[in-house]
Amino acid sequence: MLRGVVQEKQGTRVLDGLDVTLPGGEVTALVGPSGAGKTSLLRLLNRLDDPTAGTVLFRGRPVAGYPVRELRRRVGFVFQAPVMFPGTVADNLRAAVALAGPGEAPVAADERWVAGLLESVELDPAYAPRDTEHLSGGEKQRVALARALATRPEVLLLDEPTAALDPEVAERLMSTIVRVAADSGRTVVMVTHRLAEARDFTTHTVMMEAGRLVEAGPTRALFERATHERTRAYLASA
């Protein structure tokens, strides 16, 4: 949940008094034109940035009140352009749990664990020993998703996870994401430019423009009868 959030970057206001509630346990689509501030908003939730003004709350508590590394492990974040760490697919997944520090790792990061994680994002466990350098964009996106899931986050933030993918690959990834969320009761917040994706795969939709909230509500309601002219015009292109 965000309250009166203002974010300035190099003197320009990219979030301008934003009040948004992202419902727990749901898959929320964050939509709006390019430059609306969607990425900036996700970065606040994982505390990669702090807002210039206003408060970001996680489970009713200001994010600044959590130990920052604990917060980041509980709120996973998959970037728009997936960044692979050097090494194999398995190395990438193990890195995520190793970061928790000795003794804190929630699981034994053995081969079975790696295979299970890969299966959960619908990658063949045979990928485990492959070098991440030679993966395709869609494969990297899945590894990044699996890596984010490795810390068992309660919330998963996804920034245009399908933007760089073919429609068919994108659709498969979306169903994976929705299933991963449903399996674990996880909250998912995903930015997307593909409105059909928002309509078909999410339960809640937040529409932003120019750093402000335009409208938010159940996805069905928003797509069928949006109250705001801007939302109607934007969603009509779906």
Partner: peptide
């Protein structure tokens, strides 16, 4: 990008 990817994982 790499540094923030690590930070984002805690």
């Amino acid at each position: 990008g790499e540094i923030e990817a690590y930070l984002a994982l805690g």
